[in-house]
Design a protein around this nucleic acid. Structure first.
Lengths: 206, 206
DNA sequence: TATATCTTGTGAAATCATTCACAAGCTCGC
DNA sequence: GCGAGCTTGTGAATGATTTCACAAGATATA
């Protein structure tokens, strides 16, 4: 399979969202132009993105909403539930834990870990925060597939090494550090300060 | 001034972080290769990025850490403090509010707003949550320059319209929607579900 | 069936971003 | 002061992504 760019995947996930909206609004078909407008891109871009995976439309008509939605969900792998664990039950961590959209989109956070004894044992919406030491074993035992890392920057690399070692192949990192992961492990960073600095540049570099 | 790509700005912000580390470690000079290694890029990329703004190094030697740090901070506009407001004091919002790195990097959240009467009036680390209705006036009066939007998706566009109308030119959006802003307003999205879906794709599209 | 009108799918062209490769500048040791 | 050894800054080459542009398929209407 050819290489799919990161931005193409992002757009695909966006189209999925728009298709969901269109489906909720009861639309039967949608054109690449419609999708483009909502996503702030062009119709050619939409068609090119989709063409990476097949041809799903009907010339002259557009795309059948339900069908394209199904296809994209399958492509993205979101036609199923993923088992996610949270490492770091601080402010950000617990906010993420109760983020409704994750659940709604099929990402179920079924385990949480923290090294702070004060937090261990506490209940977060049905999930008990476990001690750091139990992490490696539980990740395996519970068949966790993705991990959200919300620990301080200094602790992040060590956590990631252990998590990868426990067989996890996808990591969403909130710590403001560049993490090293072996080839074959997917890593995404959410770097909040970096985003604000980007805005700062936009306001400055007039 | 030529157009600077988004990814170049991101990398610049990263270099800044590494330079800070190098400075803390007491290093005097650093080479493009050093910076590249820490940032997971190449030395040519580093030099190209920097060359967009001038030439800061000494051939044969590398870059003077303090000097380059100063330059990059100036380029990014982080050699000052920014006045930031938070709209939406829910779980994510309050987690962001107490995110220490923002403060440390010069982003001072000096106002917070929410439409929930139960939250209005409550104190968040010295800042009182104000009613939604007071937002427009206070944004202006307090000279807010950036706004972090952490409201539900349905409410986000309306908030953004008002915020832009109040003169704010930079927005960091956490709501999972594509927002429309007029030209000249900088917008960054942190779309958490999108990130997990990206990971899902990586695990699926084997 | 023929015509007018849409909209897709996709090579080709254009644009944008990264990597290469090397001349030129700087330092150090002798 | 000269040669050896680094490392920058940058055109040129390559690679990736986006946009263009249009043939071809589909529908609707008469």
């Amino acid at each position: 399979m050819k290489k799919i760019s990161d931005s193409a995947v992002r757009r695909l996930a966006l189209y999925q969202r728009f298709l969901q909206e269109a489906a909720d609004a009861g639309l039967d078909t949608i054109s690449s132009g419609d999708l483009a407008e909502r996503g702030g891109t062009t119709s050619a871009q939409v068609r090119k993105d989709l063409s990476l995976f097949g041809s799903f439309g009907k010339r002259g008509l557009g795309y059948e909403v339900q069908e394209l939605l199904r296809e994209i969900r399958e492509i993205l792998g979101v036609d199923r539930t993923w088992k996610v664990a949270l490492v770091g039950a601080g402010k950000i961590g617990s906010a993420l834990f109760s983020y409704r959209d994750f659940q709604k989109r099929g990402f179920r956070i079924s385990a949480a870990f923290d090294s702070d004894p004060a937090k261990v044992g506490s209940d977060m919406g049905g999930v008990t925060v476990r001690a750091d030491e139990e992490m490696d074993r539980r990740l395996r035992d519970e068949g966790i597939e993705m991990v959200i890392v919300a620990v301080p920057a200094e602790a992040a690399q060590a956590v990631v090494d252990r998590v990868v070692n426990a067989g996890v192949r996808a990591i969403l990192n909130f710590a403001p550090v560049r993490l090293r992961v072996p080839r074959g492990v997917a890593l995404r960073n959410v770097d909040l300060t970096l985003e604000l600095e980007g805005l700062s540049f936009a306001l400055t570099g007039r």
